[in-house]
Each structure stands twice: as structure tokens, then as C-alpha cells.
């Protein structure tokens, strides 16, 4: 995944079953952001792998003042990259079991 300067990780162990997971996002390299960034620290949130899309999370973070509108794409891409990796790992575990 491209280094967007925004880090997204699992905030807790993924049990591979629950559709809702806990993620944690923070800015590792604020020079990669286009807008002025207020250092908010690590932002933990839940994400439903089946019903939600990263773009809506990123937009809510902008609406909450964590990021500027100009950076909504970079934030949603960072979340998307991590979510894709989690889904890939889950599928790999399932296919491994099969």
C-alpha cells in the first residue's frame, strides 16, 4: 500500500468473525497532508466491514474537524488500504481452512 502519511491499524485483535472491527488512525507524516493539520492524536473508531465504506468515515472525520476537506481522499484511501488487507487476510484464513 502507498505510504499516505496516515497510519491505520487494528485497535484490537481481529477475531475473523465479527463484521464490526475497531480501527485506530493517526498521522505519521503530516507533510503528506495538503491541508493544515491540527495534531489530534490517534483516533479510534469502529468500522463495519459489511455495511460501511471508508469514504463515509473520512467525511465524518472532516465534519468533526480532525482533517480538512482537501485531505478527505487521502484519509479514505488509508482506511481503504487497511480494510482491504483485513478482508484479504480473512479470506486467506477461510480458504486455508477449506
Amino acid at each position: 500500500a502507498e505510504d499516505t502519511g496516515v497510519r491505520v491499524e487494528l485497535a484490537e485483535e481481529d477475531d475473523g468473525k465479527k463484521s464490526s472491527i475497531a480501527l485506530r488512525l493517526w498521522v505519521e507524516d503530516q507533510k503528506k497532508l495538503k491541508g493544515k493539520y491540527k495534531d489530534s492524536g490517534a483516533i479510534e473508531f469502529s468500522f463495519d466491514l459489511e455495511t460501511e465504506v471508508p469514504e463515509s468515515i473520512a467525511q465524518e472525520m472532516v465534519d468533526s474537524g480532525f482533517f480538512l476537506e482537501i485531505d478527505v481522499k487521502i484519509v479514505s484511501k488509508s482506511i481503504r488500504d487497511r480494510v482491504s488487507l483485513i478482508k484479504w487476510r480473512r479470506q486467506r484464513i477461510v480458504s486455508g481452512c477449506n
Binding site: 497510519r7 493517526w26 480532525f66
Partner: peptide, 27 residues
């Protein structure tokens, strides 16, 4: 302060806490 802060937006909860120094790149 270093305590976690909770922000609500559109029914979603964001929990904000300090990032450990070790996890920050050359900021």
C-alpha cells in the same frame, strides 16, 4: 491532557488519545 477524548459525529464515536512517541515518524 493525555486523557482520551470522545467525539461524536453522525452517530459514530471517535475516541482520541495521544499517539505514543514511538509511532510518530519525523514530525
Amino acid at each position: 491532557s493525555s486523557a482520551a477524548q470522545v467525539v461524536h459525529s453522525a452517530g459514530r464515536r471517535f475516541i482520541v488519545s495521544p499517539v505514543p512517541e514511538s509511532r510518530l515518524k519525523d514530525q
